[in-house]
Amino acid sequence: MNEFNGEIKKMMIILSKATLENVYAAFVLANGARMEGIEAEMFFTFFGLEAVHKKKLEHLHVATVGNPAMHMPTMLGGLPGMEALATNMMKKEMEKVDMPDVHEFLEILKASGVKLWACKLAMEMFHYKKEDMIDDLDGVITVGDFYKQGSGLGTHMLFV
């Protein structure tokens, strides 16, 4: 044990997926850290970039194919409109538990002091420009930069 006695000081959360359930999981973890007085930074990479892409963030979907927890045959999940249906159902349930939408959640995270970083390599791969991303983004950085951000005792990293 170190001088912090194992206490978590900072959470570094990497989001690599754009399915709504994964985006929300990462957001809740980052917000939850701040609420407990723990620092939090997020690194958006690969499909996770869609969560901070101005035009895409409002259109994220729940995965209905390859998701055993949907409890429906995979072939049904692949039918047109299925993802939209499941997504609407999930959004309704989220509103009931006072869960904000992606746009509002990003605003809450930013106001709470969470740093939001986009992955440089993935940005290049998808041909995204900085202007395509939300204004609240703290910057486009490399994985090395992100590790540097996480230096210090009591930092934990999480890959979603």
């Binding site: 006072d98 809450i108 106001a111």
Partner: peptide, 17 residues
């Protein structure tokens, strides 16, 4: 909840922190 604080009209989330 933190969301409710933000919508309270009394204080915004940034100032609350």
């Amino acid at each position: 909840s933190i969301r409710k604080i933000g919508k309270s009209g009394v204080v915004d989330i940034k100032e609350f922190y």
